[in-house]
Simulated assay, not measured.
Amino acid sequence: MDRRDIPTQPHADVETALLGPILPDRACGDCTACCTELTVKTPEFAKPAGTPCIHLCDQGCGIHAIRPRICRTWFCVWRRVASLPDAARPDRSGLLVSLNFVDKPQTCLEGVSIHVRMLAGSDAIANGMAAAVLDAVCDQLVPVWFSDGAEKMLMHPDNDVAGFVLSGEAAPRHLQGEVAAWRERYGVFGLNR
Rank of each mutant, 00 (worst) to 15 (best):
D2S: 12
D2L: 13
R3V: 12
I6H: 03
I6M: 14
P7G: 11
Q9H: 10
H11W: 12
H11K: 11
E15S: 14
T16Y: 03
G20V: 10
I22Q: 09
I22R: 14
L23M: 09
P24E: 08
D25P: 03
A27K: 10
G29N: 09
D30H: 12
C31T: 06
T32F: 08
T32D: 06
A33V: 10
A33R: 08
A33N: 06
A33W: 00
C34A: 10
C35P: 04
T36S: 13
E37Y: 04
E37K: 12
V40G: 05
K41H: 07
K41Q: 12
K41P: 00
F45L: 12
K47Q: 10
A49C: 04
G50E: 04
I54H: 10
H55S: 05
L56M: 04
L56K: 06
L56W: 02
C57Q: 07
C57P: 00
D58M: 13
Q59E: 14
C61R: 08
G62S: 04
G62D: 01
I63P: 01
A65H: 03
R67I: 05
R69L: 10
R69H: 08
I70R: 03
C71A: 09
R72N: 11
W74H: 15
F75D: 10
F75I: 00
F75H: 15
F75K: 12
C76W: 01
C76A: 07
W78I: 10
R79A: 14
V81M: 13
V81T: 07
P85W: 07
P85E: 06
D86R: 14
A88T: 03
R89I: 06
R89E: 06
D91C: 10
R92E: 07
S93T: 04
L95S: 05
L95A: 04
L96C: 11
V102A: 10
K104T: 12
K104C: 08
Q106P: 01
T107H: 13
L109W: 02
L109Q: 03
E110A: 10
E110K: 14
G111S: 11
G111C: 12
G111T: 11
V116P: 09
V116T: 13
V116F: 09
R117F: 13
R117K: 13
S122E: 01
A126D: 02
N127H: 04
G128K: 09
M129Q: 09
A130E: 07
V133N: 06
D135I: 00
A136W: 05
A136G: 10
Q140R: 15
L141I: 03
V142T: 15
P143V: 11
P143R: 11
F146T: 07
S147A: 14
D148N: 15
G149F: 00
A150I: 00
E151R: 13
E151N: 06
M153W: 00
M155W: 08
H156T: 08
P157T: 05
P157Y: 04
D158V: 06
N159C: 03
V161L: 01
A162R: 02
A162S: 08
G163S: 07
V165S: 02
L166M: 13
S167W: 01
E169M: 06
A170G: 01
R173S: 11
R173V: 13
G177D: 02
G177Q: 01
E178Y: 00
E178C: 01
A180Y: 01
W182C: 05
E184D: 11
R185N: 03
R185F: 01
Y186G: 04
V188I: 15
F189K: 08
F189D: 03
G190C: 10
G190H: 06
G190P: 07
L191K: 00
R193D: 09
